[in-house]
Structure formats: C-alpha cells, structure tokens
C-alpha cells in the first residue's frame, strides 16, 4: 500500500469516503445479484471491517435487498455482530480472492471476532464471485483504480511469497 495513503485519507472528509462507498456497494449489488443472497440469514447481520493501518473503519450490512457500507473514523467504531481486522493489504487480498482466506486466518494476518457465522458466510459468498470484487471496484474508478489495483496485487504477491 502506498505509505502516504493513510495520511491522505486522514484529511479526506467522511462524506467523500461515504460517497465512494455508496457507489461501490450500489455497483456490487447491481453487478453481483447472487452475492448477498448466498449468505442466507447471515446477510441480516452487521460486520465491522477494520483495516488497522487506515484512519477509518467500515460497517457493512450485506443485506440482499438494501446492502449498506458506512465509514466511521477510527476511535468512533459502531456496534456490529462481527469484526474482521487486518492490514489494508491483507483485507484487500481477501476481497480479491487471490489468497486463501483460511490461510490468512491461520497465519494471523486476518483476525475475526464476534459472530463467526456471518464472517464465514461472507467469505464463502465472496469466493463464489467470478473475477473479483476488487476488480469491479477498480473499474468504477477508471485509470486511477486500475493503477491502484495493479499496485495492490503486486504488493499481494510479495505478501504471498513472504
């Protein structure tokens, strides 16, 4: 991850980050209609996604009808049924499905607490996506998204090979 990114994001107003998240979740819901449905009853539960090296956390409600992702400043985390914590790079690789989620858990790169059922359901649902959500999101943001995706994948290869 570019080292300046957390510093830059610290200065970005939450409403800007929120607008990006709204666009992302709306796009995922439209492009991947089976994703949240695959989670079954677990889709009614909220997950706190915590990239520990970023100045914000995201509360995700993977509801099949009205999915929602909401950004909060670190230190102002909302309640959630489950929490997924890891570096931004580790969480990105899980989203990109290039690294095995269980292996990331075994190695402690990703930590989960709370209601494990919703975490397992989300992991399995993400894994059934042809291509990857990370690619979808990158395409939303045009050339800058493509550059960022390429950078993170290169970073992930180094993570995978120690």
């Amino acid at each position: 991850m570019p080292t300046f990114l957390p510093l830059v994001l610290r200065t970005v107003p939450l409403f800007v980050l929120q607008a990006a998240l709204d666009r992302i979740v709306s796009n995922i819901h439209r492009q991947r209609p089976r994703l949240f449905a695959r989670m079954g009853e677990a889709s009614k539960k909220a997950i706190l996604i915590d990239p520990v090296d970023m100045p914000f956390v995201v509360r995700m409600l993977p509801d099949n009808v009205t999915p929602d992702m909401r950004a909060y400043r670190r230190g102002n985390s909302p309640a959630a049924d489950a929490q997924i914590r890891g570096t931004f790079a580790g969480l990105f690789k899980m989203l990109d499905t290039q690294l095995d989620g269980d292996a990331l858990f075994f190695s402690r790169d990703v930590k989960v607490t709370g209601d494990l059922e919703v975490v397992v359901a989300l992991r399995n649902a993400l894994d059934d996506v042809d291509g990857s959500i990370a690619t979808d999101v990158a395409e939303l943001f045009g050339p800058p998204g493509a550059v960022f995706l390429s950078f993170m994948r290169h970073r992930g290869e180094r993570l995978a090979h120690g």
Binding site: K111, T113, G114, D115, L116, E117, V120, A121
Partner: peptide, 9 residues
C-alpha cells in the same frame, strides 16, 4: 458450526 465458535483476543 460457526454459530457456536468465537475467537477471543
């Protein structure tokens, strides 16, 4: 079953 598992740090 995941519904019965929890991790505590």
């Amino acid at each position: 079953p995941p519904s019965h598992v929890r991790y505590e740090e």
